[in-house]
């Protein structure tokens, strides 16, 4: 196991860990990754990954329009809105 670059991982997860907590999470992650490393003992070279245990029960519905949510419904929980849009700080100059 290589060292954990906690800054990189938290950036990937869009989290800004407070400086004093970086070590706490880095150590915690290290412990957990070490703990799950026992999987390396098993030979899985011939095994297919399992994505979904019910992979054999697929059903297809007819393509019908179903109006369940209005624009107002969708926007009703928005922290900030302007007319029919979610409002965010300016992203382009």
């Amino acid at each position: 196991m290589s060292d954990i670059d906690i800054k990189r991982i938290s950036y990937l997860a869009k989290l800004k860990l407070p400086h004093e907590k970086e070590e706490f999470y880095a150590n915690s992650l290290k412990d957990i990754i070490k703990w799950v490393d026992n999987l390396k003992k098993i030979d899985t070279s011939e095994i297919e990954p399992l994505h979904n245990v019910t992979e054999k029960t697929v059903s297809i519905r007819t393509d019908e329009i179903n109006k369940s949510n209005s624009v107002d419904d969708v926007l009703s929980n928005a922290p900030e809105r302007a007319q029919n849009f979610f409002k965010v700080p300016k992203v382009v100059e």
Partner: peptide, 28 residues
């Protein structure tokens, strides 16, 4: 936060096969 970090780590480039894909195989 801890679980999001674990998830981001095992899915990140360079570790995806060693952890995530490996675990999916063991799941089978």
């Amino acid at each position: 936060t801890r679980r999001i970090l674990i998830g981001a780590y095992v899915l990140s480039a360079g570790y995806y096969d060693a952890y995530y894909r490996k675990a999916q195989k063991v799941r089978r």
